[in-house]
Write a protein that binds this DNA or RNA. Sequence first.
DNA 1: AACGTTTTTGGGAACGTTTGCACACTTTTT
DNA 2: AAAAAGTGTGCAAACGTTCCCAAAAACGTT
Lengths: 344, 344
Amino acid sequence: MRFETSTIKDIAKALGLSTSTVSRALRDRYEISEETKKLVLAYAEKVNYRANPIARSLKERRSYSIGIIVSEIANNFFSQVINGIESIAYDRDYHVIISQSHESYKQEKLNVEHLASRSIDGLLIALSSETQDIDYLRDLYAKGLPIVFFDRVPEDFETHKVIANNFKGSFDATEHLILSGKRVIAHLTNSETLSNTKERLAGYKAALSKYHIEFKPELVKYCQHGGMHSAELEQAVKELLPLKPDGIFISSDRLTTGCILALKNTNPEVAHKIAIAGFTNSNLVELFSPSLTSVKQPAFEIGQVATELLISMIEAKRPITEFETRVLDTELVRMKKNLGNRFL
Amino acid sequence: MRFETSTIKDIAKALGLSTSTVSRALRDRYEISEETKKLVLAYAEKVNYRANPIARSLKERRSYSIGIIVSEIANNFFSQVINGIESIAYDRDYHVIISQSHESYKQEKLNVEHLASRSIDGLLIALSSETQDIDYLRDLYAKGLPIVFFDRVPEDFETHKVIANNFKGSFDATEHLILSGKRVIAHLTNSETLSNTKERLAGYKAALSKYHIEFKPELVKYCQHGGMHSAELEQAVKELLPLKPDGIFISSDRLTTGCILALKNTNPEVAHKIAIAGFTNSNLVELFSPSLTSVKQPAFEIGQVATELLISMIEAKRPITEFETRVLDTELVRMKKNLGNRFL
DNA sequence: AACGTTTTTGGGAACGTTTGCACACTTTTT
DNA sequence: AAAAAGTGTGCAAACGTTCCCAAAAACGTT
């Protein structure tokens, strides 16, 4: 801001002290005499002194802020993650800067580089569905930028990662469809390259296998853009319907809502005849029709854990060599029978 | 970031120039000889030089970033506004910092002050539903911080404001309910103190009056916390139902979804018998059951316009004395008949 | 050849902090 | 009583920029 605020210099001058003394008193550093400390603190309070974080950042070469990259803040999963992140960050006096990749690799890279140049102390990132090449992240990481991945994590990158138990979540959802009598279960999922796509596919397969249902590759549809384009979804639905699925298991938030919409828009007559189970953190699922069984990820906790890990990296005295991948359990929210698909 | 990047000094040393020359070449400032400019630019490119925005901020006493305060990013209306803001800001080389008030006055104030201390160049804010006292904003404004309000705007604050045409939106929605035969139309709305609460109430009243329906104060319920607490909504619904409304007009995004949920949870048997029209920017309305007629605000455009106004204030050479309040039209999305309330 | 102009460059202060070092003063130890 | 240790403070440099001011170089004019 351009307007004048009091600085350490002003305080020093007013009190007849040196800036160093004032700085130390303010930061409760070194043994400064109780007396001067009180004096300084009282005066600072009086003039409503706020340290200039910019100057501090410049001097300390760190900004006490952490960058977040998600594909869309409008996605409930991500906004809940962000709330989790904030809850920890603010407690630890960090400040967060949120950026959206809109599932675009180019945008993601641009944002990350922008954040890096803004001197963020660390980065929390869920890769975009387009992202294949993460060399730009490796470079930054090699230069010393702590990075923690969450939700969509790369396989070959040695750092902390936080994910939901995708395998189990998918297994549970698929099993739930099977147990409610479905036999032709399609799987609509994200870009094949994403880590969680693979894990979720595995869970789906495992459930099929447990109940001796043959896995059919043609029942699996991948959406490269994570459902950002409705055309993509409508195409997938169009290709799926001729195979007469009686259930669909969908593997991401955006795809789940997008798919139901596409189904309703293109084939309203069958929309209510297919049982749907999908990953979603929407707090509005109860309002949906057709209703669905949802796999809810512990989004808030994912954000918290990721932030704790990131801050531990940032504040680590020595380089970290042991990394962990935290896996948090999902929750299966079954379709309520009494409010369920009344059209079946 | 703690890791080394090349600075202007490094370039100067490498090229045998002074930092001032390098700075000028880089910024295309002053008359610098074409030759040196090219030399510097080429070298900067080679070493992948990035100007340190922190240092620049400190020197120039501005940060090229603008702060945003909304109640919740998880709210579709706000996330769309943010997308609009970003679309303009990034074009103009500003960078945005998003903060959430979670409808809490305390949190809002804290966040604003935090942003201000981070040297934001301007502030875009939608007040929390709790906020009554905006003196802290007046202070900052008086000190020179440009502020533009959107969505929830104070009455007595001379600056640019951007809002939806709340009166007309409400009028249209209420009229729509009336035209579909409803006569006992309740109104569920936000905190009485919010600007848009008043405008929306007025639109509701005007529509009733046009069709000679008596306005009954007991049919209007205010939610102090904007629907952040489900108890608040359930209470409102509980009080409303004995009055046997056949329609409800709801005046905000969160309240709309929250109210339908509360209705379904507490009185599922009547949920489908009441026609609902409400403000919401959810892109999932088509999935809702009971379905509803929605008033959609031009959220993206609101964000764009607000940002343009803010940047014009920031970059203004002389103090601005003429302020405008931009009013953007809403869109009424009628409940689709064929997918409608099949339960009626 | 001497001077004035214009163009290009460099020196150095400033933005608001933090912090290593040195210094002065007190207190403790020998 | 002198040396050692401890305590509180100030000086000044540094972080990476920008920009005022002055100096130097290049050129034109008389």
